[in-house]
Design a protein around this nucleic acid. Structure first.
Lengths: 144, 144
DNA sequence: CCGGAATTGTTAGTTACCTAACATATAATA
DNA sequence: TATTATATGTTAGGTAACTAACAATTCCGG
């Protein structure tokens, strides 16, 4: 009954470290790591002319609805985003970046780029590919 | 300025999923995932006749001192552990498992074993080794 | 068209994590 | 020895996650 690897525990440990580092990377834009990730999703969607609803954040971040509500409420209070209803479905709340936030983005994305580069320093492309493909499998295993 | 892989973000996403699954695994012992991990550390130390102090939890879980304090306070209140000072250093608090907790352990460890096995289902040993070695590198990168 | 099922979001209450500031105790050094 | 630095733990206040229960809307089958 020996657990050979403790993979799950190690993923959690790494994630705690990564979250702290991401928080630091977002810090001088005056926001948190999660907030930066939400802004990333919004920026990406804007490029492709797509609307973003809370459900999308839920899926992309793999957190619960109620957690999304909490994060977005804080972001709205800080003026980072605005939310408005759409005509064709009264349940949905469309999320939009404010003008002030747009000004943050370049510097923020740069810092996050640096964060990601620093994270994977010293790992070969081949190993990184394996790493990401394993992440996908584990992720799928958790969703069933 | 394209981030090629978004490895950090993906690690966080996976970790959120893993934490939920671990919480469910620990649930029918009446405890949370973190609490189960703390008990694991204590059980392991006991096998090797080693004392465990809060600093050790901090290092093994890679969370801040104040977070350790919080987790252990809750565990103490629930009667899962006790804490006592040692004669040779007044700063240290030794952490011990209570008798009631010992009764939980077999079933708990079994459920966590199942959780870990389910997590890595479908991943080859070779890829898992690569995965873990990459985790080690990323972890080190975050500590500098 | 109507009633139950599914979808989307919120609220309330809890746990786990964080930083900053603090309190003590021990170790190191001048 | 006295002072400073390091180590360990706590408190206070905040953010991010969770579950459970709820509310409202839309979808779908009879």
């Amino acid at each position: 009954m020996e657990t050979k690897y403790d993979v799950g525990k190690k993923v959690i440990i790494l994630s705690n470290q990564v979250k702290r580092s991401l928080d630091r990377a977002a810090e001088d834009s005056g926001i948190t790591g999660v907030q930066a990730r939400v802004l990333g999703i919004l920026a990406e969607a804007q490029k492709n002319n797509r609307d973003v609803f809370q459900k999308d954040i839920e899926e992309k971040l793999q957190i619960r609805r109620s957690s999304v509500t909490g994060v977005l409420q804080l972001m709205e209070k800080k003026g980072l985003i605005s939310r408005e209803s759409v005509s064709y479905d009264a349940r949905l709340k469309k999320i939009m970046i404010t003008k002030e936030t747009k000004k943050l983005e370049d510097h923020l994305h740069e810092n996050i780029y640096i964060f990601e580069q620093n994270l994977i320093k010293g790992v070969s492309n081949k190993d990184l590919d394996t790493f990401l493909s394993v992440i996908n499998i584990l992720s799928r295993n958790m969703n069933v």
